[in-house]
């Protein structure tokens, strides 16, 4: 029997009159890579935002490891170990890479006095070096992160997410805007993060090649509703998915 870390039940969300998500139910199995696809405007990012607490949902329930989180706010959810990256890469641009990494440590058990805790403890620094090495940014670790190229910033954001030791990582289009030759390296790293660090990944992706290669489980959204669910092969052969992508509205 599979364990599900995220369980979404009948979630609906509308903005004014626009229905972005309608009665969505889905489950993310523990320790696996799950994909979320769908044409532009199908409500993928809205669903992500609902899960991590960026806005209230109109109805339904969202559970993380059995705990209802649909009323929690962003930092609370993050501290539970459910982390997200942004479609528009977000890093602390005036700080260097090391500092970016250092402040991304898990804040789950931070007590008040830990605010003034040692920030460059030996294990932490080793972890920082290891992860920066892992994403290939070790040489640039003392540069202002805002001066890095877009692709490098994306890698840094990914390394920061790993630094946080999340249980589940929600990635919003990790390969968007990345040079095709770097994409393979990124896929490889995502897989390794999943296998070596045991992080469950839940990925929004437009690049079919990437997602079909990576995910074991794919959900497809269209017009705010769940269209299909299955393994990559099933999704690829699903007529309704093909129609949605080819624009048979």
């Amino acid at each position: 029997m599979t364990n599900y870390v995220i369980e979404v039940e009948g979630v609906s969300k509308s903005f004014g009159g626009v229905v972005a998500n309608k009665g969505i139910s889905m489950k993310v199995p523990d320790g696996k890579i799950t994909g979320l696809i769908g044409p532009n405007g199908s409500g993928k990012t809205t669903l992500f935002n609902s899960i991590v607490g960026y806005h209230p949902i109109d109805e339904g329930s969202i559970k993380f490891k059995g705990e209802e989180i649909s009323k929690y706010r962003v930092p609370q959810i993050a501290r539970l170990g459910l982390l997200r990256t942004f479609q528009q890469t977000r890093i602390y641009s005036n700080m260097n890479c090391i500092e970016n990494m250092l402040i991304s440590i898990p804040h789950r058990k931070m007590k008040f006095v830990d605010m003034f805790g040692e920030r460059e403890a030996k294990e932490t620094m080793e972890e920082v070096d290891r992860l920066l090495d892992f994403v290939g940014l070790y040489e640039k670790r003392k540069l202002r992160s805002g001066d890095l190229s877009f692709g490098q910033q994306k890698l840094l954001e990914f390394a920061m997410a790993l630094m946080n030791k999340p249980e589940v990582l929600l990635l919003d289009e990790p390969t968007a805007g990345i040079n095709p030759t770097l994409i393979n390296g990124l896929i490889d790293r995502l897989r390794r993060a999943n296998e070596e660090f045991g992080i469950t990944l839940f990925v929004i992706e437009h690049n079919m090649r990437v997602i079909m290669n990576m995910a074991e489980n794919i959900y497809c959204l269209a017009h705010g509703e769940m269209l299909a669910h299955g393994n990559p092969e099933e999704i690829q052969n699903d007529q309704s998915v093909i129609d949605a992508y080819l624009g048979a509205h």
């Binding site: 991590v52 962003v74 930092p75 993050a78 501290r79 982390l83 997200r84 942004f86 977000r90 890093i91 602390y92 641009s93 005036n94 700080m95 500092e99 250092l102 402040i103 991304s104 898990p106 804040h107 789950r108 830990d114 605010m115 003034f116 805790g117 040692e118 920030r119 920061m160 946080n164």
Partner: peptide, 20 residues
């Protein structure tokens, strides 16, 4: 850690919240 955290808030508070 305080110094890092307030710098992070300066650079991108929303990201800082999302990182917990």
């Amino acid at each position: 850690r305080f110094g890092l955290a307030v710098n992070a808030i300066r650079d991108d508070e929303e990201k800082a919240e999302a990182m917990g």
